[in-house]
Design a protein around this nucleic acid. Structure first.
Length: 504
RNA sequence: GGCCUCGUAGCUCAAUCGGCAGAGCAGUUGACUCUUAAUCAAUUGGUUGUGGGUUCGAGUCCCACCGGGGUCACCA
């Protein structure tokens, strides 16, 4: 329930006074002819000789009342524009709205008049008519701007409280222009990604978000229920198994950009719902996938940032040069001195890690998870420049094809940039009997952790039995790519409405 | 979920050893017909996240809870 504070009570009173004057507070019609920046360009293009008449609209961001004259800045998405309001041009009645401060900073108004330049040199509108478009009842945080001679803008006053900014993103966006720019960049990144994949000849598809069985990743799902069908359903944790079914169906290459849901912890790089891109392409292996991913990421970066060199958390990262490829085994050996192939059972590896780092695992930890631990602890944070880490332990990769003549590894890579995992790829397992055995193996390994196992998907196995061509596949955390290219701290800074606990 | 840390006016922040809750911005009133962080004068605004406790006295110390941030666990 809204409890108006002092400022809000003032504004409610002003709203009453405006209504008493016959002013409509929330009219439906607007007569805008120019955005603020179009108006400025039209004036500058015309030269001082011509009269340029405009009607502009926007939010009042500054009022400077000087007796019988007033200056206002209004702002629309394109930028700010000054209104030079004079009692002579506006007339007593309209100027009264300004002089009695019935129009507040934060209100939306429209102004009609001719373009001119003030004595101080600022291109402005000199209105003969103004009209309220929407009354603001609650004040936005106050930010004042000083435009320096060199054009840089210094801001005084801040709106920095993270909790309020995330909960009230509308206020954050209205006040903090750089926040708007992050989300424009996010959209550009996704557009660039989509058009790249289209040009590669891949078909964009949509697969179920509500799934009778979840799979394709190791994560706990959100569960829901269809009342009429009396059916439990899961929100998808990945698109993988549906997209590969489509390759069975005869598409050579498909991709999807959409939302995944994982019922896990929240952190600077984890949100319960997040945006994923996955593609699958027949007749290539994971080396072919890596080539596509490298070209794609370079193209996206060039289009979104105008360069393939980025700065992230103080690191200068060069995405333009050819990317490093290293096996997981070599990477771990370099970083820790441990060649895990010297310890081919869970017990021996556990002991080796304990001796070297005195780290203790759960008693039933698998060999692959321990290898993964070594990697994420000792290698991952150091992978600042773009790096493909190739060939992962088999027991943590149930959908990847074995490395020929190697019982321990599968053809899988992950992409690391800025010490952060951005993507995951396989030469996809297409042998239905091997796949069935892997499901069984996963069920054995993870039996104890009730809901963490990858459930056997019989329909997926049926699809594979019809014949699945050799293919490579890839998945990328889109939010993380945006974090990287926008150089922001947290996934919450690239989600318009990040997940928060309930207020109050 | 464990641990650490923060929560004071609409926003950004003060408040000494536990001793009268304050400032700037904005808001209100007044002055000003080319200002631009406008200026000048006066002025309103607080259940200090919530609930307990210790104390003559709590924004400050203790406990619990709520919310944020960080970190570990879980997890890409």
């Amino acid at each position: 329930m809204w409890q108006p504070n002092n400022v809000e009570r003032e504004r409610l009173e002003k709203a009453d006074r405006l209504r008493a004057l016959g002013v409509e507070l929330y009219p439906a019609r607007v007569e805008r002819t120019h955005t603020t920046q179009e108006a400025i360009r039209a004036y500058e293009a015309a030269g001082d000789a011509e009269t340029v008449s405009v009607t502009v609209a926007g939010r009042i961001r500054r009022v400077n009342l000087k007796g019988k004259v007033a200056f206002m800045h209004i702002e629309d998405e394109s930028g700010r524009l000054q209104l030079f309001l004079r009692i002579n041009e506006l007339g007593e009645d309209q100027f009264q709205l300004v002089r009695e401060k019935l129009l507040d900073v934060d209100d939306f108004i429209q102004a009609s008049g001719t373009m001119m330049r003030t004595q101080a040199g600022e291109v402005s509108v000199q209105p003969t008519h103004i009209r309220l478009l929407a009354k603001s009842l609650s004040p936005l945080p106050v930010i004042k701007q000083q435009v320096k001679d060199d054009g840089t803008v210094v801001e005084y006053g801040e709106f920095t409280d993270k909790e309020t900014r995330y909960r009230q993103r509308y206020a954050d966006l209205a006040v903090n222009r750089d926040v708007r720019e992050v989300f424009v960049k996010r959209t550009r990144i996704i557009q660039a990604m989509r058009s790249f994949l289209d040009r590669e000849g891949m078909l964009e598809v949509e697969t179920p978000i509500l799934q009778p069985l979840y799979g394709g990743a190791a994560a706990r799902p959100f569960t829901t229920h269809h009342n009429e069908l009396k059916q439990d359903l899961y929100l998808r944790i990945s698109f993988e198994l549906y997209l590969k079914r489509l390759i069975v169906g005869g598409f050579d290459a498909v991709y999807e950009i959409g939302r995944d849901f994982r019922n896990e912890g929240v952190s600077f790089k984890h949100n319960p719902e997040f945006t994923m891109m996955e593609f699958y392409k027949a007749y290539i292996d994971y080396n072919g996938v890596a080539d596509i991913v490298e070209r794609m990421t370079k193209t996206i970066c060039q289009q979104a940032n105008g360069s393939t060199t980025i700065v992230y958390r103080g690191h200068t990262i060069d995405l333009g040069s050819p990317w490093a490829r290293i096996t997981m085994r070599a990477a771990i050996q370099q970083a820790t001195g441990i060649d895990y192939m010297d310890y081919q059972t869970a017990d021996t590896l556990r002991q080796a890690i304990h001796e070297r780092f005195s780290h203790t695992f759960k008693p039933d930890e698998t060999w692959g998870k321990m290898v993964e631990h070594l990697f994420s602890e000792h290698v991952e944070p150091k992978l600042i420049q773009p790096t493909f880490v190739m060939d992962y332990p088999r027991d943590i990769s149930p959908f990847a094809k074995r490395v020929q003549g190697d019982d321990f590894h599968v053809e899988r890579f992950e992409l690391y940039i800025g010490g952060m995992e951005l993507g995951n790829a396989f030469t996809e397992l297409n042998d239905p009997l091997d796949q069935a055995a892997r499901f069984e193996e996963m069920a054995q390994l993870y039996r104890k952790e009730d809901d963490d196992a990858t459930p056997t998907d019989e329909d997926y196995l049926r699809a594979m039995r019809y014949g699945m061509p050799p293919m490579g596949g890839f998945g990328m955390g889109v939010d993380r790519l945006v974090i990287l290219l926008a150089n922001v701290e947290s996934i919450r800074d690239v989600l318009l409405f990040p997940h928060m606990r309930p207020e109050a």
